[in-house]
Design a protein around this nucleic acid. Structure first.
Length: 215
DNA sequence: CTACCGATGATCT
DNA sequence: GATCATCGGTAGC
């Protein structure tokens, strides 16, 4: 008897219901070098076209966001700020356009692989400080690096025969979940769609959206 | 601990 | 041409 994983019906729900339900669960990535697994401690929900100004699907379907309009349970990976990847899990049936951003977690298996991947992305400095255990996947771009997720993983089914799965373990207790505004966005600040496990040290620090001035 | 700022390029208008 | 679901370093409390 093998491991049990979350099925598609888990993801065929609104993102703001899936996001808190993912907390405490373990996402696994089986790579050629071995398994890397993260216990999710922070997520954010992103909503439907025309409804959520912070969602990549707000203005409808484009080449970049097309995976979000596909079948639920697939991974949507996007590239941003010219240097970072972020990973999401698609929610609701084909044609809807919504997802949950995986913001942070605790590496529970393959910490050596995760640390090697994280250190490889650091600029060559004189005396690079060792990355603390809790910072390995503390933040969405860090989580993607630690798990080895990038362009190649965009569109992969996480409910099928691929290398990505979410274990069907117990989720965090509702009383242990914090709720608040999403991080780093310009619009949609009123919507309380960020969820985290209270008092967990791997939850990312809050950051305000930083409007840029042109050079 | 919080606050700010530059890096860097794909994406969309 | 503007924006961007970020990060690491630095400054300051």
């Amino acid at each position: 008897m093998g491991e049990r994983f979350l099925a598609r019906e888990f993801f065929d729900r609104p993102a703001d219901r899936v996001a808190p339900d993912l907390l405490g669960r373990v996402l696994v990535h089986d790579t050629p070098a071995g398994r890397i697994a993260v216990r999710l401690t922070e997520t954010e929900a992103y909503g439907l076209p025309g409804e959520d100004p912070a969602s990549h699907t707000y203005r409808g379907q484009t080449p970049r966001n097309s995976v979000m309009f596909g079948e639920s349970g697939h991974m949507y990976v996007y590239f941003t700020y010219g240097m970072h990847f972020c990973a999401n899990l698609v929610c609701l049936p084909r044609g809807m356009g919504s997802a949950v951003l995986l913001r942070a977690g605790e590496i529970v298996e393959g910490a050596g692989l995760a640390r090697a991947a994280r250190e490889a992305t650091r600029a060559a400095g004189p005396a690079p400080r060792r990355i603390p255990e809790r910072d390995l996947a503390r933040g969405p771009a860090r989580l993607a690096v630690a798990l080895g997720l990038g362009r190649d993983h965009n569109g992969l089914d996480c409910c099928g025969a691929g290398p990505l799965r979410v274990l069907a373990g117990e989720a965090a207790a509702p009383t242990a979940i914090g709720v608040g505004p999403r991080t780093g966005i310009a619009n949609g600040k009123e919507t309380l769609w960020r969820f985290w496990i209270k008092a967990d040290p791997t939850v990312s620090p809050h950051r305000q959206h930083m409007p840029r001035r042109r050079a």
